[in-house]
Design a protein around this nucleic acid. Structure first.
Lengths: 150, 150
DNA sequence: TCACGGATGCAACTCGTTTGCAACAACGGG
DNA sequence: CCCGTTGTTGCAAACGAGTTGCATCCGTGA
């Protein structure tokens, strides 16, 4: 399982996306690739990542912008991150609003919504949210950074 | 369209859920019922809601806990809210990461995922997130409020 | 090996949301 | 209809995730 697959090698991932192979990026990617679940910035910090929090935030944003990682928002305001490669296909996530834990659910079989609502034993669903993010017509191409919304 | 439907009357909604019919709650519900899109706390404030922000936050949390409104998280940390009644069936949302606007997409036809990815003209999807929130096995029943996650 | 441009670290900050507490008001019993 | 209980509101302060400015550092390509 520790195969030298190009999609599992931080350096190759970075090179393919034309990103500098720096120590922080490699370390974060290694952690993300090894993890079997989506993780937060705090997870990275508390597991001995010896770097500034800001670096983690910036790195994750870069990886997200390049399509290397998926960003999963939660109602608590904490974002979770996971690898976005073919080894980790799109799947629903279950977020416990009480203990604030994030669980990956099995990938979609055929994309039927019903299957998504068939939850593993013990999980009690309160809400299903499908959110698609990207750029709307007005913003296509030119990102507007800090514009106050009316 | 301004029908005296029980699902569209703030007072009846509150009574059915055994919540006190206070002015702030009625005002917020009225706004949510009238709105054709999901809105934020800032939307409520900037549209002349004459009450403390804290009251809005607490009210929305209460309505969410009672299943009256749906809470839609975004990666920017801002939550959006919309009515969760049969007049407003479950539907995907499109969030522009640039201008931070939220758009409601047509309800699911048959629940097929493919249909969700057929976006209206102009929208450029970067990521699809399916998140189911609720209570996990450990938390079933007893909400743990402020426990630090490891 | 060198210079350049992008990446990092630090400090300070923004912003959405929560919490503690005192004042207040909705609601059911008398 | 009034009154006490209980839940709700307002205010101030705090919290926590994430961002920004700037000086320094270091990968990268020549």
């Amino acid at each position: 399982m520790e195969k030298k697959d190009s999609h599992c090698d931080p350096r190759e991932v970075l090179e393919r996306k034309q990103l500098a192979r720096t120590a922080p990026r490699i370390a974060i990617l290694e952690k993300l690739i090894r993890s079997d679940r989506a993780i937060t910035v705090n997870d990275l910090v508390s597991e001995g990542m010896d770097m500034d929090r800001v670096t983690i935030y910036r790195t994750l944003n870069t990886l997200r912008d390049k399509g290397i990682v998926r960003e999963i928002p939660t109602s608590s305001g904490t974002n979770y991150y996971e690898m976005a490669c073919r080894h980790n296909p799109l799947h629903p996530h279950f977020y416990c609003t009480s203990c604030r834990s994030m669980t990956c659910l099995p990938p979609l079989a055929g994309g039927e919504m019903k299957a998504w609502l068939t939850l593993p034993e013990g999980l009690l669903a309160r809400d299903l949210t499908v959110s698609i993010s990207g750029l709307c017509g007005r913003c296509d191409g030119a990102p507007v950074r800090k514009e106050k919304e009316k």
